[in-house]
């Protein structure tokens, strides 16, 4: 009875909240794009300013690069927290993994997945994608390995220390490029002018591709660490 009352009350509250939200959202005027302000400027002169064809990458790694630094710091913090909470000294000894055919097929596919990941990372300023998306694809390789070959395979090849090295290396690359911006151009995370080449080529857009590479390594290694920390306990019980 008590539970039913609670359910009814919460449903009433939820309906009320939904109604209030709907009322308020219908107040919002139809968005027609803005004739002045941030987005208009970026659409007009984003290409000239940054040399990046992809304007979203231009926003992420040039106009608002500090946000991206904060964002990768959030992942760094999450990784540290997860490793702290789940740290166990147990080495994951694996199950045998899937069948021979699957392993062979994956062996053929892996280079292409890695290639796609690197493509997404390095072409962040030309096509959709960038450090974050490509980094997740790289982490996915690690995840697929642990499913198909059994978890110890990837673990033995790339120890947690290596992954940590990649992760902090990526973060420090980002920070270092920012400091280089202070030294060479005068402001933190300013686009490095001397790296700019002809627009539309791979080595254009100043420091954006290099930041992308740093972020890609950071995110990939960090997410792989998260995944490996989370599957460790299963194997502890297998003993």
């Amino acid at each position: 009875m008590n539970k039913l009352m609670k359910k009814i009350m919460i449903s009433v509250v939820l309906t009320g909240v939904a109604f209030a939200l709907y009322q308020n959202f219908s107040l919002m005027p139809e968005y027609q794009g803005l004739n002045e302000g941030l987005s208009n400027y970026i659409i007009k002169s984003g290409l000239n300013d940054t040399g990046s064809l992809n304007l979203i990458t231009a926003v992420l790694y040039d106009y608002r690069a500090f946000d991206s630094l904060g964002e990768s710091t959030v992942i760094f913090g999450a990784v540290s927290g997860i490793v702290l909470i789940l740290s166990r000294k147990m080495l994951p000894v694996s199950s045998k993994g899937l069948s021979f055919i699957v392993k062979r097929a994956l062996g053929i596919m892996t280079p292409f997945i890695a290639l796609f990941g690197f493509y997404v990372i390095t072409h962040g300023h030309l096509t959709p994608g960038g450090g974050f998306q490509g980094g997740v694809i790289l982490a996915a390789i690690s995840i697929i390995f642990s499913i198909v070959y059994g978890s110890a395979f990837d673990y033995r090849r790339y120890s947690p220390q290596t992954k940590t090295l990649f992760e902090t290396g990526g973060a420090l690359t980002f920070l270092g490029l920012g400091l280089a911006g202070i030294l060479m151009e005068g402001a933190f995370l300013q686009n490095l002018g001397f790296l700019t080449a002809e627009t539309g080529t791979l080595i254009s857009a100043g420091s954006i591709p290099y930041i992308n590479i740093g972020v890609g390594f950071k995110v990939g290694a960090g997410l792989a660490i998260i995944f490996y920390s989370m599957i460790q306990k299963t194997f502890e019980e297998d003993f």
Partner: peptide, 28 residues
């Protein structure tokens, strides 16, 4: 408009890391 898309991208990544941390705590 590219700006809301860039902000949303940030939000998605942050959401994924919070979800991972929450699940870790649930396992613990």
């Amino acid at each position: 408009d590219p700006v809301p898309q860039a902000l949303t991208l940030t939000g998605i990544v942050i959401g994924a890391s919070t979800a991972a941390l929450l699940l870790t705590l649930i396992i613990e």
